[in-house]
Amino acid sequence: QYKLILNGKTLKGETTTEAVDAATAEKVFKQYANDNGVDGEWTYDDATKTFTVTEKPEVIDASELTPAVTTYKLVINGKTLKGETTTKAVDAETAEKAFKQYANDNGVDGVWTYDDATKTFTVTEMVTEVPGDAPTEPEKPEASIPLVPLTPATPIAKDDAKKDDTKKEDAKKPEAKKDDAKKAETLPTTGEGSNPFFTAAALAVMAGAGALAVASKRKED
C-alpha cells in the first residue's frame, strides 16, 4: 500500500492506493492530482511508501500587484493662495480627484486645466468685478505754475525817508514850471496885442512921458 499527501493551493489531504510497485503507485497518484487540478513538486519516501505533491505559491510580479504610479503636479493661482504641490497616482483621473479635494480644503475654486505632456494640473481663480463699480481712472494732477518767491520789503530809515520826500518835491517844481510855460503858450491872443491902433497909441504915450521927464529935468538944472 502506498500513500499520497497533497499540499495543493486549493486541495490538501491524503489518499492511498494498492500497487505492485512504487512506479505503478506514482502513476495512479499523478493522475489523481491532475484530475483535481494539483500541479506541484513530487517527492517519495521509500521507508514509509509515501508520495508527497506540493504546489508552490504562485509568484506574482510586483508590477501586477501594484499598478505603476505617476507623479502629477498641481499649480494653484488663487486669490489668497498661490503655489505648487504634487501627488502620486495611477492615472490622471485619480490625481485630479486628489487635487480638487486639496483645493477645496484650502478654499480655492476656479478654472481647471490639464497638460498631459507635463502631467500638470492648474487651477486659476478669477477676480470677480462688482457690477456698477467701473474702475475709475486715476485723476491726472493739474499743471501747477511754480510760485515766484516774494522779495521782502527793505525798511527805510527816517532820514532817508525825508530825503526821498525832498527829492520828490524838487522833482515836482520843474514839472510845474513846464506846465505854466505850456499854459502861457496856449493862452489865446487878445485884440490889444494884435491891433495896430492900440500899438501906435501906446508908443505916443511912452514918447510923451519921456518928453515930460526931460523938461522936468531941465527945470531942475
Rank of each mutant, 00 (worst) to 15 (best):
Y2S: 05
K3Q: 09
K3R: 10
K3P: 02
K3S: 08
L4F: 07
L4A: 07
I5Y: 13
I5K: 11
I5E: 11
I5M: 09
L6D: 02
L6N: 04
L6G: 05
L6W: 03
N7E: 09
N7H: 12
N7C: 11
N7S: 09
G8E: 03
G8I: 03
G8Y: 05
G8W: 05
K9Y: 10
K9Q: 10
K9W: 11
K9V: 11
L11M: 05
L11Q: 04
L11C: 05
K12E: 09
K12I: 09
K12R: 13
K12N: 11
K12A: 10
K12H: 08
G13S: 04
G13Q: 04
G13T: 05
E14L: 10
E14F: 12
E14K: 10
E14H: 15
E14M: 09
T15L: 08
T15C: 07
T15D: 04
T16R: 13
T17C: 11
T17F: 09
T17M: 06
T17E: 05
T17A: 11
T17I: 09
E18F: 14
E18M: 11
E18Y: 14
E18G: 13
E18N: 14
A19S: 11
A19W: 06
A19Y: 05
V20M: 08
D21P: 10
D21Y: 13
D21K: 10
D21W: 14
D21E: 14
D21L: 14
D21N: 12
A22T: 06
A22W: 01
A22Q: 03
A22Y: 01
A22M: 02
A23Q: 15
A23E: 15
T24D: 06
T24H: 13
T24C: 13
T24V: 09
T24G: 09
T24M: 15
A25C: 08
A25D: 01
A25T: 06
A25R: 01
A25W: 02
E26R: 00
E26Q: 00
E26Y: 00
K27M: 03
F29E: 01
F29N: 04
F29L: 08
F29G: 02
F29W: 06
K30M: 02
K30G: 00
Q31R: 13
Q31D: 03
Q31H: 11
Y32N: 04
Y32W: 08
Y32R: 05
Y32F: 14
Y32L: 08
A33Q: 01
A33T: 04
A33L: 02
A33G: 05
N34C: 02
N34P: 00
N34L: 01
N34K: 01
N34S: 02
D35F: 09
D35Y: 10
D35P: 02
D35R: 15
D35E: 11
N36M: 04
N36G: 06
G37H: 07
G37L: 07
G37N: 07
G37M: 07
G37F: 07
V38C: 04
V38G: 01
V38R: 02
D39M: 09
D39Q: 10
D39T: 10
G40N: 01
E41M: 15
E41N: 14
W42T: 00
T43G: 13
T43I: 07
T43W: 12
T43P: 01
T43K: 12
Y44K: 02
Y44F: 09
Y44E: 02
Y44S: 02
Y44A: 03
D45H: 12
D45T: 14
D46P: 15
D46R: 15
A47T: 12
A47C: 12
T48A: 11
T48Y: 12
T48G: 11
K49H: 11
K49T: 10
T50I: 15
F51R: 00
F51A: 02
F51Q: 01
F51E: 00
F51W: 01
T52G: 15
T52S: 11
V53C: 12
V53D: 02
T54K: 09
T54G: 07
T54L: 07
E55A: 05
E55G: 05
